[in-house]
Design a protein around this nucleic acid. Structure first.
Lengths: 115, 115
DNA sequence: GAGATAACTAACCTAGTGGTTTAATACAGA
DNA sequence: TCTGTATTAAACCACTAGGTTAGTTATCTC
């Protein structure tokens, strides 16, 4: 895997188990055991997922006795949001009519539909 | 690996070459050769990246003679935006985190912070 | 100190990814 | 029909990812 930050974040999010972990953490800190409970897989597997999330900056871990509670860190998602914003016009329905209009008046544009 | 749509989209976006291809396509349709030109890698490698993007629904391909022009399809990004929106309060400083957090606790939604 | 509990590491397996080279396919034009 | 161009397919390789089991470390409690 390429290790530029955005790629790491996208890669971390490309797994439903890890997204479920983030969803759980969005409701508050949780221990590894608590996070692993809903899944069929073993604890080391969950531990690996957590390491992926941690390397992407999406979670942080503190230490309380033998527990290492995980906390959601949303900051990397800002990069995703910024990347996504550049493409908003390609998926946001409220732009559809504008796109149609531009397509209409730009028929035959050699550089493409929206150059 | 996982074949749920959102995972496929995130996975497709987790590669800088593929994101660069999307950036290029955001300025209009392009042939495979044109898309491959900025990269060091061989043409079959680019062709594979395009296949990944196509399976994720992020591009479509038409046929004009021996050319297979690619076009950006933004629809799958809406799913990303919706997923991301649920976490906005964790990265957008303009949100009042405590209020949102309390709202979510009261809803007791198990699937995510705001879904 | 002796368990019990929480979490991690190590070693391993299978399958997938990203790249290559070489060969095949599809089409345009002379 | 032959040739050049655009693109994909096949076979292969090194590396990574996601999972397992078994063993280790850290800490609490008795």
């Amino acid at each position: 895997m390429t290790h530029d930050p955005l790629s790491q974040v996208f890669s971390a999010l490309a797994d439903p188990t890890r997204r479920a972990i983030l969803a759980r953490l969005s409701r508050g800190e949780a221990s590894v055991n608590a996070l692993a409970e809903p899944f069929e897989m073993t604890l080391p597997a969950v531990s690996k997922h957590l390491k992926v999330l941690e390397k992407a900056g999406l979670i942080s871990r503190s230490r309380t006795a033998q527990w290492r509670p995980c906390r959601l860190e949303g900051a990397p998602l800002r990069g995703v949001a910024e990347w996504l914003e550049a493409y908003r016009k390609f998926w946001d329905g409220s732009f559809d009519r504008l796109d149609d209009y531009l397509d209409d008046i730009q028929k035959g544009d050699p550089d493409g539909p929206r150059s």
